[in-house]
């Protein structure tokens, strides 16, 4: 695929949105860490692993946000973002099956979203990441 100027802008916007999303989500989790850990424990799927998942998720989010900011690692970070977003998305679908108990632990204003809204939000971000990867040039030397 040939790289057009607006592709570069598009990639910049996608990366910016992801950096914003991940760093916001991670920091709001870490700021209220005890609550976040408790919320994870309340989830029927995560009860047993809440202790270390509570650390791993924000760290991965921050790492991906950091890599997205470095042009050299942008492609790798976008792949990482896809993995993470698909993990969150499938988790939402899985948790919806436990309809009697669905606590959210996304942190900050993201918590105010309903699960269905959340699903749409996640799928939209997934699509953004996929589009970003498809138009990013294989080797970035010029940005």
């Amino acid at each position: 695929m040939s790289v057009r100027p607006y592709h570069i802008l598009f990639i910049e916007i996608i990366c910016f949105l992801f950096i914003l999303l991940f760093s916001y989500a991670a920091i709001s989790k870490l700021l209220d860490f005890k609550v976040f850990k408790i919320q994870l424990g309340q989830s029927p799927l995560l009860t047993v692993f809440a202790g270390w998942i509570a650390w791993v998720i924000p760290i991965i989010e921050l790492m991906i946000a950091l890599l997205l900011a470095i042009p050299k690692y942008r492609l790798v970070a976008l792949y990482g973002a896809i993995s993470l977003m698909s993990l969150f998305t499938l988790y939402i679908i899985a948790i919806l099956n436990f309809s009697d108990y669905v606590p959210c632990s996304c942190g900050g204003i993201l918590e105010t979203m309903g699960w269905q809204e959340h699903l749409i939000f996640n799928v939209a971000f997934l699509c953004l990441a996929i589009m970003g990867i498809l138009i990013v040039p294989q080797k970035i030397n010029s940005t």
Partner: peptide, 18 residues
């Protein structure tokens, strides 16, 4: 192929949790 791989990679932990 890599995108599909990443999607599956992300889904794997949830499937295992299930």
């Amino acid at each position: 192929l890599r995108i599909v791989g990443c999607l599956i990679l992300g889904m794997l932990p949830v499937l295992i949790l299930n």
